[in-house]
């Protein structure tokens, strides 16, 4: 591939070495793709899939949408662990980036600010619609969370101080809220004599809707925080604003 090539004359010896390496990897990749294609095209035993079993249990799941039923009832473990992954990701991103003073951003264009003022309420509206529609058709917590996260990203883009002025504890609790609520539901089910994450038929609809709302909120907040990158500043650190960004000036 072209992007492994290097500039400069001293790199020519290395280039030969790399081209040999890339040739080897090309051969291996060709072999891998041939093997995968062979495995895919060889007719195996016809898999029945799980569609019939999902349909058979749909009446007990509490929702009409099959995907939502799988996500929040049959395989709610997935969604629980996903909330955990989001929490972990935010923790890693915050610990990797030292809180940096906000650089001087270019002035916000009036066109841009009015666009954002128009778009953000629309996004929240569509997110709510998808959340509400999720129990009967396509849509649900993930899609609503993604759109809410996009609205948050728009807000961060137009005012870069937004994240740093928000109280950090509140932000952290908002991100953990989905995970904690999920765990509470799961443990509550055990306390009531059921299995982990098992809902009663009578209350399944309410539980799923509550889980969806909370999960959408947490997912949206986490996605916006991912985009914000660095951890919000502590009030004590804010006095140090104005120092050069980390890493600048260390160039040899």
């Amino acid at each position: 591939m072209r992007c492994v090539k290097m500039k400069g004359s001293e790199a020519s010896g290395k280039r030969r070495h790399i081209s040999l390496l890339s040739l080897l990897s090309l051969v291996m990749l060709a072999g891998l793709s041939a093997a995968l294609a062979w495995a895919f095209l060889t007719p195996g035993p016809d898999p029945l899939g799980l569609a019939h079993r999902v349909d058979a249990a749909l009446a007990e799941s509490g929702v009409e949408s099959r995907v939502t039923a799988v996500l929040l009832n049959y395989r709610a473990y997935d969604t629980l662990l996903e909330c955990f992954v989001l929490f972990l990701g935010v923790a890693i991103v915050w610990s990797l980036q030292p809180s940096r003073p906000v650089r001087q951003e270019p002035r916000v264009d009036p066109v841009l600010s009015s666009l954002v003022r128009l778009l953000v309420p629309l996004m929240v509206l569509v997110g709510g619609y998808l959340l509400w529609a999720g129990s009967s058709q396509a849509g649900g917590a993930f899609q609503a969370g993604a759109i809410l996260g996009a609205a948050g990203v728009l807000l961060i883009l137009t005012s870069s101080r937004l994240l740093s002025t928000m109280p950090k504890g509140l932000l952290a609790w908002g991100i953990c809220l989905g995970l904690f609520f999920f765990l509470a539901v799961a443990v509550g089910a055990v306390a009531l004599g059921g299995n982990f994450l098992e809902y009663r038929r009578s209350s399944a609809t309410m539980i799923i809707i509550a889980l969806e709302v909370v999960a959408a909120f947490s997912i949206g907040l986490s996605l916006a925080v991912f985009f914000g990158g660095s951890r919000p500043e502590e009030p004590s650190e804010r006095t140090a604003a104005g120092r050069p960004p980390h890493g600048e000036g260390e160039e040899p």
């Binding site: 396509a138 849509g139 899609q143 993604a146 996009a150 985009f227 990158g229």
Partner: peptide
């Protein structure tokens, strides 16, 4: 798969693109 399409429309082209652009700048 309209569910997946909704998520991909929001995340795949919007959020991931913004993440990459921001990281590229940094």
């Amino acid at each position: 798969a309209p569910d997946v399409a909704l998520a991909e429309a929001a995340i795949g082209s919007g959020l991931t693109g913004a993440l990459f652009l921001s990281a590229l700048r940094r």
